[in-house]
Design a protein around this nucleic acid. Structure first.
Lengths: 281, 281
DNA sequence: ATGTCTTTGTGAACGCGTGCACAAAGATGG
DNA sequence: CCATCTTTGTGCACGCGTTCACAAAGACAT
């Protein structure tokens, strides 16, 4: 067991909590906006409002970086922008490669938020030979065969995967083998990576599903329509149903194949197909 | 103050913790894959591995939904798929609109993961008149003027914002006014919404910045190169520098304008421009 | 110089999420 | 029917993150 981890437990980097690190980019964005308006200083209350967080949280977050504020005044905008940028490692140049130049990959390549934060798209890579040479966002797409060479020549340590789910693990393995140690994964799959490699996941459909849950709850509260049974009764009924399923299967002779799949769920199995096999190994 | 919240504290929906809800889609995906391979049952250990989580966590998550497992055997795949789908509200049809049909919007429209989960793209909306009528992913783009009518005619309650940051809040307001109560925001801005409206945020560049932080830390550990001073010394130096800045500004006469911006950060202020003003109000 | 007023920085309490470890439940074999 | 073995469901403890509330620090006016 212990197949491999997806996201490290984050052994408390250098005293900076993971939750704080995740908010630093938020603060940075708000501060950059203030900087462009030539606002010299900002209070924790104002900045917190602009970043959409609690002011106490913001102050505690900044306290991990050091004492950069002035009591009675607030924080120096320019100085704070520099400190956060430095802490996040944005004062240096990060070459990244994007693998999988479909709709999403192209969108990412064109995304302006990268270049402005010290990220430089070093290469676009796609498995389709027909794509090779085509310019996307002003950069010629290169074939997957060149992957290893590109990584090494450019000293790339961050890779973005925007391939279909089926190809993601394979691409991931090649990226890691070539020296990439941080991966941003847009493919709907759980990636397995060796220790020391960071993976962050962005899943578009998962976000929508979470919204749907809350949406359903909201609708269900206003008028208790969909929810048929109480919690306890539901659990009992479930157990009952489950047993029935097993009895049917047993009676059917128990071959390896699915015996008719006669569940209440049989009608809900719409045209799927985008979800690939998860870890066939 | 208290300008408005971005993400609700999630007053413990119906006993199901928010963290659990966020993992349900993960389980669902893994289960769907098993279902397609006609696997009848699965143990918590196997399923946890496929979903990339701890098995105890998975069992506890499922315990919130009810007792759907069989001791000594595991969970019935088909049955669990149905239960989770129902809990997430995926047994019903959710019409969604996507606003902002640029690269990202088009990618989202083409994304197969939506349709397969009960989400139906009811309309694509863009502010550019030149886009109107153009088919994207087989759907004709409609102009922003039609927004309110589209929402109401289709009973849309979930909206996706993929516009530039500058337009996001305005679009958000119109969506909410028209009846949308859940929003998935891809624009790099903090959206302000009234109570009762859920907002989830996906920010591409923030994820990269978090990766950069860890990447820098990894590089810094292997060879202490970039980090110049120790923690305590750094805080002291910072305080010193900050004071110096203030003195300079004071000496310059203290006009509203930035007095030369002579910080150590002055050289790091590259060509930005994608970040819009944050909450001008 | 002294007092007042603003705002930071942080100690402390609380709640949530996670993971361990085990008892209970049920399947399976004799 | 009993014994054994597998796997679930959960009580419990621990650690992280959030929030409150306040003392200390500094600006600013007099």
């Amino acid at each position: 067991m212990a197949t491999g981890r997806t996201h490290r437990p984050a052994t408390r980097s250098r005293g900076i909590p993971e939750a704080t690190v995740a908010r630093l980019p938020l603060y940075l964005r708000a501060l950059t906006a203030l900087s462009e308006r030539s606002v010299p200083t900002v209070s924790s209350e104002e900045l917190a409002a602009a970043a959409g967080v609690n002011s106490a949280k913001l102050r505690k977050d900044f306290s991990y970086l050091g004492s950069y504020g002035t009591r009675g005044v607030g924080y120096d905008v320019e100085y704070l922008v520099y400190q956060i940028s430095r802490e996040l490692g944005l004062t240096q140049d990060w070459p990244v490669v994007i693998v999988g130049i479909g709709n999403l990959g192209a969108a990412l390549a064109n995304y302006g938020g990268f270049a402005s934060r010290g990220f430089r798209v070093a290469a676009l890579i796609d498995a389709d030979p027909a794509m090779a040479g085509k310019p996307v966002a002003g950069i010629a797409v290169q074939h997957t065969d060149e992957l290893e060479k590109i990584i090494k020549d450019n000293g790339v340590s961050i890779g973005v995967i925007a391939t279909p789910a089926g190809a993601a693990q394979q691409v991931c393995d090649r990226l890691v083998a070539a020296g990439v140690t941080s991966i941003l994964n847009f493919a709907p799959t759980v990636l397995t990576v060796p220790d020391g490699v960071d993976v962050r996941k962005v899943d578009l459909s998962i976000e929508l599903q979470i919204l749907a849950f809350h949406e359903q709850r909201k609708a269900g509260e206003d008028a208790g329509q969909d929810d048929d049974e109480s919690d306890d009764a539901r659990a009992v009924a479930a157990r009952e149903a489950r047993r029935a399923v097993r009895e049917v299967r047993e009676a059917a002779g128990k071959t390896g194949r699915d015996a008719d799949a006669s569940t209440g769920a049989s009608d809900r199995k719409g045209p799927d197909g985008d979800v690939p096999a998860v870890m066939p190994a």
